[in-house]
């Protein structure tokens, strides 16, 4: 139970940070993708560098992320969907918390898409897609 609450505390922090970054703001995200504002690009790049420094000093048993057949096609679909809705899975949840009701539709779509992928994968694909967080 304590572990579960700790997990939840990190979710709380993530939602808070994403919101404060403006990641749940459609206009901010589109300004990023339209290359009109460097703010979120730089923020994202810096966060990768910061995390990278952390991981360097904490040599890790974290799961490896090899290439697999789903990487490129999956990422293209995700990128197109992100440009349409303005949300990735994390920021869709953030938007909902901010009171943006359209996020309900984006989230429903996200769950539906994840479910659909499960069905399609089982039926047609043979690779291991790994996981975002296990």
């Amino acid at each position: 139970m304590r572990r579960d609450l700790r997990v939840a505390a990190f979710g709380l922090a993530l939602g808070y940070v994403l919101s404060w970054m403006g990641f749940g703001d459609y206009d901010e995200v589109i300004a990023m993708f339209a290359l009109q504002s460097p703010r979120l690009w730089l923020a994202f790049a810096l966060s990768v560098v910061v995390a990278g420094i952390g991981f360097r000093y904490q040599h890790t048993s974290a799961p490896r992320r090899p290439l697999h057949k789903g990487i490129v096609p999956g990422s293209i679909l995700f990128g197109v969907g992100w440009a349409i809705t303005g949300v990735c899975p994390g920021s869709a949840l953030t938007q909902l918390g901010e009171g943006q009701l359209p996020a309900l539709v984006s989230l429903f779509g996200t769950f539906l898409g994840a479910w659909l992928y499960g069905v399609v994968h089982k039926r047609y694909f043979r690779w291991d897609p790994g996981s975002c967080a296990m």
């Binding site: 994202f44 789903g70 679909l77 349409i84 984006s106 779509g109 399609v120």
Partner: peptide
């Protein structure tokens, strides 16, 4: 939004991760 959301859900699971 529904269509885009489906792409996000399907794509992230296919790629095995998101942002």
């Amino acid at each position: 939004l529904l269509f885009g959301g489906v792409l996000v859900g399907f794509g992230t699971r296919m790629a095995g991760g998101c942002t």
